[in-house]
Design a protein around this nucleic acid. Structure first.
Lengths: 257, 257
DNA sequence: CCCTTTTCACCTAGGTGGTAAGAT
DNA sequence: ATCTTACCACCTAGGTGAAAAGGG
């Protein structure tokens, strides 16, 4: 549903104070969230394929460093309303740690010693599969550089943003702290909350003075996830295979189309 | 090389008067031009594939009407210089008829009557293959609606445009007069000259008054072509197959990589 | 007859999780 | 023992000309 109000809309510029965002594919997000959403993060770029004659550009663009870094699935996409059709806006996303813990997936006690892992109070015990579950396993790694992802159509008029669903399908995740492709850097085995920001492009000369009034932020709790380098919860794997068209090769039968 | 000056740079706004454009892949364009470049134009959209559950959007964007309409090959791409790095520019292309004739590909005289076809004076006789060649065959069809193609990154700063090669690889050609996808409409069997325009986005309130000063146009003669629905000159077909990566499936041996 | 449209196999390009090997 | 990486088969998505079919 429509949701996500930032910390009080008071004092906001009139160009953003009525902005609203509805999360798309909400039921799919909730289905994942009930199991404990996991998102793959990877480090390596795609192995540079053999280029005839050492060709490094094609179609006029430098060949993008082919990247195996992963998209999010489900894709974060919203339907916007309440923008000024004629004003310019920038849309962007960032990711904030949900807590200061790192996690592990297991049985709680791997061997002889006392069980140091505990289910985080913020993690419902349903985030489990058979006898395995997510267990807190110490303090979080130092936060990775807090990158943001600008929607590639930014800036654009409010009318353009409201015309159709806005999709962040170009957003990619990595665990490479030295990533130089502008991707979002996350720590594996840590939990994150995606955030979405609508920023009014203020044409006033001293617009910096009003920066705090010119944006509005949205947070959808059902989109929180655990960053992993390989899926841990087998139910998550199966739901990804069932719902992501690119994973169709791993489907067995012909259930719900 | 650097080329294409419009009709006199005098009276141009200082933001465009020093603009210069170098055609990329010039030797490939010239190789095609020596044979008489042909570009495919098509009418139909791609047959709408079966969508599970009637899905009409994916990744948040409405599924683009899948289109079989064809790109240009070679791709029109230029390297820009002389722009104001901090000013905004719009880049666009259009296509102007090279003459008022329609053409046919053949032997000049198909049967008993007198040969009405003549090689156009503007068509070098080398635009021929074996005994076939391009022959003028009457007056041109009424010109199709004169559409323009805006580079999708428009508008952007001069610095952005000059940073790397600007490619019009998204540009598509059609012979469908009723096309509603914004593609470039051309008449088959007619000759065209692509034009490239750099437009300074004038921030002045009464910028319309200066519209004629705020753009600069470039025309590269080696990019002229005949619009066709199927290739006529077999040498053109072979050069397309040899140089377009998407046609690799039709290559025979392993010549010049 | 000449031109156009449709359909097809074969590519490029790149997004999936599986799997086995590697790292700590 | 647990987490990470590299490589793979198998998909989606769509850009090619060939060849056959259609149309005036």
């Amino acid at each position: 549903g429509w949701a996500g109000e930032g910390p009080g809309a008071s004092g906001k510029n009139r160009h953003v104070c009525h902005a609203a965002a509805r999360l798309e594919m909400g039921s799919l997000w909730e289905e994942f969230n009930r199991l404990g959403t996991e998102m793959i993060v990877t480090k390596a770029g795609r192995w540079e394929p053999e280029r005839p004659g050492g060709l490094q550009r094609w179609g006029g663009h430098p060949l993008p460093t082919p990247s195996l870094r992963r998209r999010m699935f489900p894709t974060f996409q919203v339907k916007l309303s309440g923008l000024d059709p004629l004003a310019d806006y920038v849309l962007l996303m960032d990711f904030i740690p949900l807590d200061d813990k790192r996690y592990r997936w297991g049985w709680g006690n791997g061997g002889g010693g006392p069980d140091l892992g505990v289910l985080s109070p913020s993690l419902p015990c349903r985030y489990a599969f058979h006898s395995s579950s997510w267990l807190a396993a110490g303090r979080a790694e130092p936060a990775a550089p807090g990158r943001v992802h600008f929607h590639p159509d930014s800036p654009a008029k409010g009318a353009q943003w409201m015309r159709q669903i806005v999709s962040f399908d170009k957003l990619k995740l990595t665990n490479n702290l030295l990533d130089d492709n502008g991707h979002i850097i996350l720590n594996s085995m840590h939990r994150y909350q995606p955030r979405f920001h609508v920023v009014f492009v203020d044409p006033r000369h001293d617009s910096e003075r009003f920066a705090h009034q010119n944006f509005k932020s949205f947070s959808f709790p059902e989109t929180q996830f655990m960053a992993v380098t390989a899926y841990q919860n087998h139910r998550i794997t199966q739901l990804k295979i069932a719902s992501n068209p690119f994973a169709k090769g791993f489907r067995d039968g012909d259930p719900e189309p």
